[in-house]
Design a binder for these strands. Sequence first.
DNA 1: ACAGCGCCTTGACCTGAATCAAGAAAGCAA
DNA 2: TTGCTTTCTTGATTCAGGTCAAGGCGCTGT
Lengths: 230, 230
Amino acid sequence: MEPVLDIMARAPLFNGLSRDQLEALHAIGTVHMAEKGQTIFEEGEAADGFYVLLFGKIKVYKSSMDGKEHILHILGPGEPFGEVPVFIGANFPATAVATTPSKLLFFPRKRFIDLISQNPSIALGMIGLLCLRLKEFTHQIENLALKDVAARLASYLLALLRDQRTSSNRSIRLTISKSQLAGVLGTVPETLSRVFSRLSSAGYIRVQGPEITVLNPEGLQEVVTSGKWG
Amino acid sequence: MEPVLDIMARAPLFNGLSRDQLEALHAIGTVHMAEKGQTIFEEGEAADGFYVLLFGKIKVYKSSMDGKEHILHILGPGEPFGEVPVFIGANFPATAVATTPSKLLFFPRKRFIDLISQNPSIALGMIGLLCLRLKEFTHQIENLALKDVAARLASYLLALLRDQRTSSNRSIRLTISKSQLAGVLGTVPETLSRVFSRLSSAGYIRVQGPEITVLNPEGLQEVVTSGKWG
DNA sequence: ACAGCGCCTTGACCTGAATCAAGAAAGCAA
DNA sequence: TTGCTTTCTTGATTCAGGTCAAGGCGCTGT
């Protein structure tokens, strides 16, 4: 298993920190394990610290009483979560569940705030992270409020294509199940499935299980911006 | 007109700063005026700083090409905006327009980052602000993704009631037009109007222009949580 | 007072997407 | 392989809410 410090060093939050600073951080954190399906924290629970994911995959979501859930984030190694209530002294605003066996680093609230108060570079890292989250959320709100499901999916696929651009090819692999993707896009599996087949038969993409080939990126972009296609 | 420093002192972002620190901040900012309807910045524009509203009212929104707009924030005096791109070196993710004549303080990016690097208390204030925004956005996403318009309106009214609780009475006043409210709630004026009258005839509220009397807060809470009502 | 203009309301209609209900694939265990 | 479970797809139906269109109400300024 890769050393904890190396994973931390790669996390954007801790970008540009010296080895000494990382050691100091590591010293105030405690390692936790979570098995698949385990709840890390639940919406409304009191928060006395936050987590950094070292290994595994976490989904953070909101759910309504009638069982529907909307996924806010799917997190991979190096990403922090549950940081919001640390700074406003409130409860967790959402629920976090491990979707694979995971390893977490937990930072207690008070000690982390002390550290940050003396360490402007960590503070700036935290600010950068929060701004990134805000931008993502802005995008999510925009999608939910003004775009239809096809546009949301197209936007998601183009983002994936941008991120996992393995040199030249236009094939991407979904890192989450289609049901989960439906949750991320604010819809249900049935609808997502239909949209996939509409985009397929329109010739924009080809779908083979979790393998998506983008045949016509410009077309997808059209779907995102104008919502019309053909 | 109230001195700029006093307004800044009241802003949560600058909470707990000494007079000296406020002076330093003020020194790096420049005052701008905006008339009603004037655009402060537009989505996609390069951002080289952010603003604090001193006086007036600002709406920050996303719009789609077919003219629909979704309002992300309506800001009052003391509130900062456009701070996200300062820290991730990107363009403004949304558009800001003055809805009344307004007075703004503009902080150039570089000088503000310098200041924050040496001033952990400003950094913490900024972190707190960003976390608050994230929490609001989380709530907004939850509303858009899993609640119907009636629940969103009920939630909004209850929040207003909590905020402007003028001692004992249950009457609140909308600070924005109903069309704007529709934009905030992610719907259109027609639908909002219908929901208002449904809630009225169900006996939960009474509406007289911008004056809303909440007759049955528990009932409204029911609408928010279960989405069902009588 | 009256005209003119925003803003709000109401009605009729339409459509995107959720729901309900079966199946079909695809994993996985024994 | 054979079941068994989980995930995905497809079809039929329903419904919330958006769109289009037509007034109504309450402003302001003249």
